[in-house]
């Protein structure tokens, strides 16, 4: 399983791929890269049951790279694990926290406790609208694929073991008991992590993202 092979930052792409794989070169063709470096590279390797990578909605959107989406949409035999969050506001706050700290994941026993942050309500709403829009699109764009809808809250957080068993079954790989190695930052209640939480709540009140 590779990481974000189409991350903006070259170092992050390298990290997502691991040595000695060839990293995606900015401006090169995304479809060819997937075909030649991600999937075909390992074809014929009997020890591999499945090959996958992580892709955010907004990655591989640059000229060249964007053909990766065409590749994924056209190859209907690919299995898609569609990871979504019910609470998009949590996702946004985690995103801003990670952006500020430069750390996107923390080890389970070394939970970071950053200072409460101020949320820009316009940026927040634009982010939520964008995710909402792309999530609906992804459901439609990959409707001909085998898709496993994985909810961060209802599956991964509620019962990680069972969720991973289902994912492995979906991918057709022999089930392994997988330990929880990583935890997202900021698992404290969102009200305590956002200084202007009331302002955010009001800004979202008459939108599809209203906090219940």
């Amino acid at each position: 399983m590779y990481g974000e092979v189409f991350q903006d930052e070259l170092d992050a792409r390298r990290e997502g791929l691991g040595f000695p794989n060839e990293v995606f070169e900015t401006g090169s063709d995304g479809a060819s890269y997937l075909s030649n470096n991600i999937y075909e590279e390992c074809a014929g390797d009997d020890e591999l049951f499945a090959i996958g990578f992580k892709l955010f909605y907004m990655q591989a959107r640059e000229p060249g790279a964007r053909t990766a989406w065409r590749y994924l949409m056209h190859h209907r035999n690919l299995r898609i694990v569609h990871l979504t969050r019910d609470n998009l506001l949590e996702a946004f706050v985690s995103f801003v926290e990670a952006r500020a700290s430069g750390r996107w994941l923390s080890e389970v026993d070394k939970l970071l406790r950053g200072a409460p942050m101020h949320v820009d309500t316009d940026e927040c709403l634009a982010f939520l609208d964008q995710i909402y829009s792309y999530r609906g699109w992804a459901n439609q764009a990959f409707c001909q694929h085998q898709v496993f809808e994985l909810s961060y809250e209802r599956h991964l957080i509620a019962d990680f073991g069972s969720a991973m068993t289902q994912v492995q079954k979906f991918l057709g790989v022999p089930p392994l008991r997988l330990p929880v190695l990583l935890r997202k930052q900021g698992t404290a209640p969102i009200e305590t992590r956002v200084i202007n939480f009331d302002e955010v709540r009001r800004a979202l009140r008459h939108t599809i993202h209203a906090i219940k």
């Binding site: 909402y132 829009s133 939108t207 599809i208």
Partner: peptide, 17 residues
């Protein structure tokens, strides 16, 4: 332009609901 599209699409759905 994308921001405009996203905003209208999300809000339009909300109004209908």
């Amino acid at each position: 332009l994308a921001e405009f599209f996203d905003r209208v699409v999300a809000k339009r759905y909300w109004v209908r609901l």
